[in-house]
Design a protein around this nucleic acid. Structure first.
Lengths: 229, 229
DNA sequence: CCAAAAGTGTTGACCGTACACCCATGA
DNA sequence: TCATGGGTGTACGGTCAACACTTTTGG
């Protein structure tokens, strides 16, 4: 049986992670300034190589865990990039993943060790290889997905206010919504629950905190979801 | 520089193609009965291995061309499958592609040579490895895509009638639409043009032929497209 | 002349959109 | 007390969904 495979080529397989976070009203990416070759000193995505006995998903999880110390992260396979010259060092096929992170929940020391920084999607520098293309691809997918799945919540703390949620959606979709319509729409969907507690400090009146209700969402999610607004 | 890669593992990379066609009101898949090992005699998707100096897209094109003799095919990368034991013979990472074909436009001899057959998506047999999962994945993506992009037209001949188009959409989405609303909706989008010619033979009255107008579509496509009906 | 398939029109319900008013509170 | 941000309500227009009538023509 093995004979069948003998004359085929083998390849390095990399996994590169586009890591999104949300902070101060800005959608941000976690990028690293490489302190290793190749392309030392340049900006890039966090990545690594697939190992034997590891799925792509696990490789992505491992890479994310290394960098952030977080293990329960929303993560999705994006696309396989395969231009023969995409990595000038060697032929490497890269599978991009994108991940959504709650910025404040994790270990800043690890990030510093890796020379990583949160950078606004509005100010993305030139990245190595085809990483800029990967990022653009990820942003498109994120925009698309937030319209049809409630994954946006993965970027917010457990308790959030409606104005915060709106700011997140505006940062992702890069457009602004009417405050009243946004609130009406999101509430009518019925899968966020208002808490007693109000947010203090930011505004005078204070906004109610809400929690995402995954169970209610799952009940409703079969008929689909369109956040066109 | 090469030192960096030295201790990493290398992998076989396969490309498997989920090939859709539309015939006699049925959405069909092109499957092959393997006349080679491993898994000789079982049903599977058409696939092949990635070679040096070849992108994944090109590998998929090559495989499709081998099987169908067609080179201009709508094709899209689907997903990378990487379970370590997915192929019992060797560790193989597979990137699935799905393709849309006009069934009557191509070479039946090639298909027979490969032991391939068109099989309705309603009667998909057990396939090798994780190919059933790939197929399900492709069907989901096809359903999703036909709702937001006019790719359905890739499955019809150049000239088609509205009832044919409706039958296609019903086969893909696995539900039925109201004839009048379907026609109204599709016409209101404005990217199909009616021809003078009418279809003869099938119905007494005869239905007008239409052509897909890619240019008009491109003009409109920026604001998005939702075929929820 | 009738049956079968195709073309076109009408209506009510719902949803997206635009817009206005009131409330709570820290400064 | 007033400026700022937050919560809620209304009214219009367009689109989806349900439904009926007319047209064409092969048998």
């Amino acid at each position: 049986m093995v004979a069948y495979y003998r004359k085929k080529d083998r390849f390095f397989i990399a996994v590169d992670c586009i890591i999104f976070g949300f902070e101060e009203g800005e959608l941000k990416l976690l990028l690293i300034k490489r302190n290793f070759d190749p392309a030392k000193g340049k900006w890039s995505l966090m990545g690594g190589f697939l190992s034997e006995n590891e799925t792509l998903d696990l490789a992505a999880k491992r890479i994310l865990d290394n960098l952030t110390g977080l293990s329960k992260i929303y993560m999705e396979q994006l696309f396989g990039f395969s231009q023969p010259d995409r990595d000038p060092g060697e032929r490497v096929i890269s599978v991009a993943y994108y991940a959504l992170i709650r910025i404040n929940e994790f270990d800043n020391k690890l990030i510093e060790q890796h020379g990583a920084e949160w950078i606004s999607v509005k100010e993305i520098p030139e990245l190595i290889f085809d990483h800029n293309q990967m990022v653009q691809n990820a942003i498109n997918k994120l925009q698309w997905n937030t319209r049809y799945k409630p994954i946006g919540f993965e970027l917010l703390p457990e308790k959030f206010t409606i104005p915060e949620l709106q700011a997140l959606y505006e940062a992702i979709q890069q457009k602004s919504y009417d405050r009243r319509n946004f609130s009406k729409k999101i509430l009518s969907m019925g899968f966020i629950n208002r808490l007693e507690e109000k947010q203090k400090g930011f505004s005078k009146k204070g906004a109610y905190f809400y929690k995402f209700d995954k169970q209610k969402y799952d009940e409703l999610s079969e008929k689909g979801f369109d956040f066109k607004l």
